[in-house]
Each structure stands twice: as C-alpha cells, then as structure tokens.
C-alpha cells in the first residue's frame, strides 16, 4: 500500500493575526500544522499498521520551516517525508493542491489522506481539489477508515451524530475529520533523533492554478456585541459568576 498524506502548514490562530495590506502579515505569524492534519497523519499510520505499506507525508514548504512538522510526522510513524519548495506564504489552497497533486501523481498512491479543512481555506480545501486533479473519488468528514484489498470502507459524519458508511474502490482521497483513535504522542527525544537521521526529499513546485481570488480586504470581524467582561482575580471572577448564576436561579 502506498499511503500518502497531504498536509498544510498554516498561520497559527493561537495568537493575534496582524494584517499587512489586504492579507495576513505572514512575516509576523507562527506557522503550525493544520490541526486536522494531525488526525489525518494518525489515520494514515493506523491504516499502515493494519495493512502494511508505507506512509509518505507531503506538504508545501510555505516559509522554509516545514522540516519540524515533517520530523514530527516521521516520529509518529510516517516512513517518508517530502517537501515542495513553494516558499510562498500566500500560496492559496488551489495553488497548493495543484503542486501537491503533481507531486503525489508520481507516488502512485493507493490512498491519499488530507485534513477535512484548515482554518485558512479561504478558497476551499486541498483534499477535494487533489482528488479532482488526480481523478480519484473523494469523501470528507471521515472518522474511520478500514482497507481490505482494493476497497476502503469509510465512515462519514453528518451533523447531529448521523453518519454513513461507504465502500470505495481505491485509489481515493479521504478528508479526515477525526482518526479512528486519537493521535499518538511522539516524545521529544524521538523527534530529535528523527531530525538527526531523517532525509526529507525536496520537490520543486510544478503546475499553476488558474482559479484565483483577488484579495480586497482582511480585517478582524466588526464587533456588533461584546460580552460584559468580569475582571479581577480568579476568585473575584468566580464570585461574580456564582452570583450571576444564583440571581438567575441557575445555581
């Protein structure tokens, strides 16, 4: 089994996102692995453990700092790491999907995993786009994957706890919502060890996306209402909340 995971390196939303011109100021933000890609990497490794094969993780190197993410993926059970030397922090999902599809094509994958979405998917997610470029079927919102022979059985989640099970002839692209088991932990010592020994294959970006958006404006949302903020020490805040709950008969 050739198992491929396509990942996105995206601006962290844990901190403030400064704006420069009409986009995020990419020089002033930290880049992190898309949270759904953590699930996607885990799901790929689980499939490998069940069926055998190799897991190749591939992503676009947006700011020249993808190695750390790839080392972590290797420490968690991936076998190969590939970075596409995009070096364009503003490359949109369409452009990244084009580059990724070109790189993945040569890997002859049986199954491709991608995170179901990313917080910077302004122009949509890379998973379904990669599927379109590779002419493979796509199902997203997936929370479990089992592979037997050339068929994958996947569970897709709908709202409200409803879902559906599908059987898919491989190859396919899976958009992972959550892996069957929670992502495993890789100790720092193992990541360090991988970083010293691993080779990351570099691939030049190939192909250009023609579907574009012109950025007009980027700004924090206009606030129409704001919570009344409780200030003071934690004890004071707790007392104010308890008083509020009691006054409304909720405690």
């Amino acid at each position: 089994m050739n198992i491929v995971v396509a990942i996105k390196h995206i601006p962290s939303i844990a901190d403030d996102l400064p704006v420069k011109g009409n986009n995020v100021d990419f020089d002033s933000v930290d880049f992190v692995l898309n949270e759904f890609d953590e699930q996607s990497i885990e799901q790929a490794v689980l499939v490998k453990e069940a069926t055998g094969g190799t897991v190749t993780v591939v992503g676009v190197d947006m700011i020249g700092e993808l190695d750390g993410v790839l080392h972590l993926a290797l420490a968690k059970g991936a076998d190969k790491a590939v970075k596409i030397t995009g070096d364009d922090p503003a490359a949109d999902s369409h452009q990244q999907a084009k580059w990724l599809a070109e790189a993945i094509k040569g890997m002859s994958p049986n199954i491709v995993f991608a995170g179901v979405q990313a917080s910077n998917d302004l122009d949509g997610q890379i998973g379904p786009m990669i599927a379109a470029h590779l002419d493979m079927p796509y199902i997203g919102g997936v929370s479990s994957v089992e592979v037997a022979g050339d068929t994958a059985t996947v569970n897709k989640e709908f709202a409200g706890g409803f879902g559906a099970k599908y059987a898919v002839s491989l190859p396919m692209v899976v958009g992972v919502q959550a892996s069957t088991k929670p992502p495993r932990y890789a100790p720092i010592s193992k990541v360090r060890q991988v970083a010293q020994t691993a080779t990351i294959e570099k691939v030049a970006p190939s192909g250009e996306s023609s579907a574009r958006l012109t950025m007009k404006k980027m700004a924090p949302p206009v606030v129409t209402g704001h919570a009344e903020m409780f200030t003071g020490s934690s004890k004071e805040v707790a007392a104010k909340i308890v008083d509020l709950l009691k006054s409304k008969g909720l405690a």
Binding site: H94, P128, M129, Y138, A211
Partner: peptide, 22 residues
C-alpha cells in the same frame, strides 16, 4: 456543510473556476 464541503472545492478544481469557502 458535511455535503457541500465534499463538492464545492472539488467542482472548483474540476472546472478551473475560483471558489470561496466559509
């Protein structure tokens, strides 16, 4: 949504037409 998210970006890439999500 669970269904639209499977289709919008896929159609966009198939047709080479731009897409806006969220």
């Amino acid at each position: 949504s669970a269904t639209g998210m499977d289709l919008a970006a896929w159609l966009s890439a198939r047709l080479g037409k731009p897409c806006v999500a969220y």
